[in-house]
Nucleic acid binder design. Structure first.
Lengths: 338, 338
DNA sequence: ATGAAAGCGCTAACAC
DNA sequence: GTGTTAGCGCTTTCAT
């Protein structure tokens, strides 16, 4: 008989064996009690429960997942938790998944594009599936990653049917906004563009190119900007230089940053300048003035992506990508051309 | 010879055995290659790597954690990811933990107080430790939970030395704000209080009671409000009714909501009314007008809490609670009494 | 340098 | 109804 191997583990919580021993039953019985299997004699079950209580036992999810081959948990990868747009989607995923009895674990990549794939693989290897929200990685990297993390769903990126997809139609949305400004009489419009690498920024650009073709008389000037408050704040000089009477900001955050600057500069909105955002984050209704923007059903996007993912976990067929078309929400930040 | 047990697992990813078989080596060798153990012959290692590549193998973190008894991952429980205050703390935890080679998994409880303890236990049972950010549960529930999820750290709750703690000194902070308003000549001040159950709200209240004692001539009226934009927006009627010339809002969000309403009502800030926030969330510098508030080093709180937790994971002694004192940041939303 | 096998904590098939 | 035991995928000791 070989002597017992010794492998000291750093932490030793209470395990099912401790309960079994204390209650004087087998591990199987403890497991049955824990999982509510009804074929356990009431007096035995009671003894087990007492032991569980006494030792404060909670089963290791790690061991459970390994044994079951399933964790009923999904991972969500977010580039930046501080962006309200992302956590609205996250919220939608969360609610929908919870309704189906799934837990959600979130990993924030802190906009570290390099570590994105590794994070995705890591979280996938602890969960049953992952959703990638607006991943920053390049398309080849994404296409390389997807097969390694199936089942997987992706928000706001195209994947050529290599994953479930839900996305927002930014191209159409930005045109709706532009049309709104044109209807108000504006002829010179500035577009504060987002990050160079952003797919959704390209979509907007694509939309504006289409818009120009149908409106040759309207001038739309692209101004490099960014996606943060500070970017919008700093964009004022460029906007002033452009002679525009209206601004299409990349998103609400940028618009809000610009609004702050305009207030400081004494520029009246919308009397002197009209400003629009995109996404309709919760704060946009409370800014001074309230922001005209495109409202996107972000929680709906999250719910849709979960539905697709859930199908895939269940082995169902992949559906077609779900496209959300945003709706114009007119508030007080836009008005007639001065 | 017993027949092989069959237990069909829902999903079957590539495992270490597949690699071992394909490369014609033992699982131990594959494990060594995966973990960079140097005692593997180069040609063998090469064969293993080829197999790994061919099958796109990534090790199950679940199995790994179970075997190692450690995952180098911590869980962070947040009541509401959409609150910038929380994800700033989260950000601090994340950066600090990452620097020590730990991954961070986030669970959002969606303000579901009832499910909080269960979520904490669940995430703890997949990770090496947890941090609870401003848990909503009652004190008895919290004290009952803490021993079951050690090592654990808590932000903005007291635990009587049952956990590592980092917290913000709201009582002192709100007094600093009140003093700032008094220095500007205000004598009637409204305090828009936060949620009934909020510990930090009680702290503020405590601070204001102390303030009243040292300033018997100043009237500070408490107005029930809440913690969201909408709460601040709706508070206007009560504020007007109170005759106050300055408002201490529960936090920045409430202040921002109120600012939005004041703009709509044509009330000038700070000429007609001064407004302060608390937390200094990123947007507060860009509002119209920029918000006077208490700046809290939220990422610092996160980093501190990680440091304590890291010590505990390493088996170190518990340190004293870390207290962060916020600093007054004066911007344009406060001015002399009208 | 490599492999065989034990063991991490749990579940479930099977035997009694 | 309850216990025994194999096995989930991995790491690591021990033997070779």
């Amino acid at each position: 008989m070989a002597t017992k191997r010794t492998r000291r583990h750093p932490v030793r919580q209470t395990t099912i064996s401790d309960i079994a021993e204390l209650a004087g039953v087998s591990k199987a019985t403890v497991s049955r009690v824990m999982n509510g299997v009804p074929t356990v004699a009431e007096d035995i079950a009671e003894r087990v429960r007492a032991a569980i209580d006494e030792l404060g036992y909670t089963p290791s999810q790690t061991a459970r997942s390994l044994s079951l081959g399933v964790s009923r948990t999904i991972g969500v990868l977010v580039p930046d938790l501080s962006n309200p747009m992302f956590h609205q989607v996250l919220h939608g995923v969360h609610r929908a998944a919870a309704a189906d009895g799934y837990r959600v674990l979130v990993a924030d990549t802190l906009e570290d594009e390099a570590g994105e794939a590794a994070s995705a693989i890591d979280i996938r290897n602890r969960t049953d599936a992952v959703v990638l929200i607006a991943p920053r990685m390049t398309r080849p990297e994404l296409l390389d990653l997807l097969p390694r993390v199936q089942p997987v769903a992706v928000v706001n990126r195209t994947t050529g049917r290599n994953a479930a997809v839900a996305q927002v139609d930014y191209a159409t949305g930005i045109q709706t906004l532009a049309q709104h400004l044109v209807d108000l009489g504006h002829e010179r419009i500035a577009f504060l563009s987002g990050p160079e690498a952003s797919r959704s920024n390209h979509e907007r650009l694509r939309g504006l190119i289409a818009f120009r073709e149908t409106h040759p008389d309207i001038e739309i000037r692209e101004l490099a900007c960014g996606s943060g408050f500070e970017d919008g704040y700093r964009a004022w000089d460029a906007v002033r230089g452009s002679g525009a009477t209206a601004v299409l900001a990349f998103n609400d955050i940028v618009a809000l940053g610009l609004l702050g600057r305009l207030d400081e500069e004494g520029v009246r909105v919308p009397d002197d300048l009209s400003v629009t955002g995109f996404d309709d984050i919760p704060f946009s209704r409370y800014s001074a003035p309230p922001l005209t923007t495109m409202t996107v059903d972000l929680p709906g996007v999250g719910a849709a992506v979960w539905r697709e993912l859930h199908d895939e976990i269940g082995g169902g067929l992949r559906r077609d990508p779900v496209v959300f078309t945003p709706a114009l929400t007119v508030r007080a930040s836009t008005g007639p051309r001065p």
